[in-house]
Design a protein around this nucleic acid. Structure first.
Lengths: 347, 347
DNA sequence: CTGAAAGCGCTAACAT
DNA sequence: ATGTTAGCGCTTTCAG
């Protein structure tokens, strides 16, 4: 049986009220130091840990953050956000209630669950940058991670798609490329739209070869999509000396297409990706130059922000930020070769 | 202000006790159906949700499971276990408190934190099969996920390393290979030991070429390790027609070495991995034949078991299980070619 | 500076 | 069949 505050008080020969004051640190100046010391000793001796339920019942709030996840745990690397969030929470003495909601529609019902728990704050986290609809009544301060809620003033943090893509494209421009291809998923998401915008702006800025054939749209974002797209790109835009893909997985497919065609990376073809899925980007030979997704940073920021909001007396202004995960330079970019001769396919 | 039980009782014109009985379903046979109906209506009208803190305080236990994670969220795919655990918990009306402990040493201190929360049960989950030491006093029923605790009778679930490896090696045997290489990390973990044992047994069983040069030990488990190991294997064991690697990532390196040497997969070389890291195994061309890690199944099993233990009156016998995630056949295995001529390196 | 006491919302033993 | 009541452990007035 765990020791209660009453046990501590009895042992220290003070009232429970005094013991509570001391242990919660609110007794400073009110309780004599000698008494306080007695209480602390007694608590230590008894291994007193307190009872969250009793405290919550009394204070009508729990030092708990509810994390409503949309696939965050499952997706490689997105889980990093989770870990970062938990660390940040722990640092402020909050714990994390993890709930995988499955679909956006299930958010509302799970918010009610969190209300029962009397969570002090709520994180709604997605594994990819998306738009979300939220019920108008939120049971606690809420911040979105890798998601935005248009038509609503609410804190959120997302990757800086435009900035990141621009940065990695500068690598290509810096190496001297002018015939640059863009392989991107066709569906319209914040990520596709913003990264494509960055590509178009970079192209305009650097006067890249303005041929509509330089872009290939795909159905999905995996290696097979990248592979097929690259084959098509080589056909419809043979001048290409560098390719930017919307994701690392697609870049992996591009590598494979190059391998098969006897095109060497980066000598004959420079390639850049996005996401920094280390399993892929680091494993490729040469390593893929890409942009990291700021999972960790988003988790940390979101929790910091949430706690700020919870603990601040005033109403804070809404804060919506885009974080650039940063360029990761590996070996997939080189200067275009002048008199490049494309070797024929190997089979 | 959320409605309380008292509000419901007043509205239904009954006592709080009666209301409690009805809402918790324990009133069957004790409360008249008409009364019960009145209570349920009142609760619905008020949007009554109950207060976990009050209930926990009273019952001295919370419908909460503490999940102490050792890197589970960060590791690609291991997070799947987390999602599965949460689903299973929710199905039994438990919620999940997620805590990333960082290192095994931090487990003890976090167990005390869970004690404060009065969790009904505890999951200690690792992202790889390992041995763990646990304090002798656990604050609640505990089950280990992807970890064991030697010298201790405690429930755990781990991947069936031996069974899985044996199964994927049967693919090689079935295709008719006799000169099979084994690329494995040199450090001794349950996974290395058991998978290596499976290799040795398969080799003996099928009378594979018994040459000590057929195995190459590596420092790590990533693509670069696999790549270097494969180069070495080709040199010291040139007869090799099939390679089994300890991880998919290492297999990826093997593919790359083959590509560079002009060795075609699977025509000239069959390859099998372990883990089924889809990002890798599915993306490779041809897809990698491998063994899945049962993350999802482990999560589900562990929670089921834990709840069984929590809710069972008697002392259950300890249950320790190994789950085989299952063979995933893709395209990396073929029959060895009779008069195979190794093409020379491409550069 | 310290103690007594009320009460958070709920459950369960005990009355009626 | 239903109501009354006594706490669970803690915080926080309010008295002393």
């Amino acid at each position: 049986m765990a020791a209660t505050l009453k046990d501590v008080a009895r042992r220290a020969e003070v009232s429970v009220a005094a013991a509570s004051l001391v242990l919660s640190g609110k007794g400073a100046g009110r309780i004599a130091e000698a008494t306080a010391e007695r209480v602390r000793t007694a608590a230590a001796e008894l291994g007193y840990r307190g009872n969250r339920a009793a405290r919550s019942l009394r204070t009508q709030s729990a030092p708990l953050l509810g994390l409503l996840s949309l696939g965050v745990a499952t997706q490689p690397y997105a889980g990093t956000m989770l870990e970062a969030a938990q660390f940040a929470a722990r640092e402020h003495d909050y714990d994390l209630l993890f709930i995988e909601v499955g679909t956006p529609e299930a958010i509302a019902e799970n918010l009610r669950l969190l209300e029962e728990h009397q969570v002090a704050g709520i994180l709604v986290a997605s594994y990819f940058h998306r738009e979300l609809a939220l019920p108008s009544q939120l049971p606690a301060p809420t911040v979105l991670v890798d998601a935005v809620c248009p038509d609503r003033d609410i804190d959120w943090v997302v990757p800086d798609e435009y900035g990141g893509e621009s940065e990695v494209l500068e690598e290509l421009a810096g190496a001297g490329h002018h015939h640059v291809g863009w392989i991107c998923e066709s569906r319209r998401y914040p990520a596709t739209t913003l990264r494509t915008k960055a590509f178009e702006d970079a192209a305009a800025r650097h006067g890249w070869d303005d041929d509509p054939h330089r872009v290939v749209l795909t159905e999905g974002t995996n290696a097979a999509d990248g592979y097929a797209a690259m084959l098509r790109l080589l056909e419809q835009f043979p001048k290409v000396t560098a390719v930017a893909t919307m994701t690392d997985r697609m870049a992996m497919g591009v590598y494979m297409a190059c391998f098969e065609r006897g095109i060497r990376v980066p000598r004959d073809m420079s390639i850049v990706g996005f996401d920094d899925q280390v399993l892929v980007s680091e494993a490729l030979r040469p390593g893929l130059t890409t942009v990291a997704l700021p999972h960790r940073q988003m988790g940390t920021w979101a929790v910091g922000r949430l706690i700020e909001r919870i603990e601040s007396a005033e109403d804070l202004a809404v804060s919506q930020v885009r974080i650039n995960g940063g360029l990761v330079v590996r070996g997939s970019v080189a200067a275009p070769r002048a008199g490049r001769v494309r070797t024929s396919a190997r089979r």
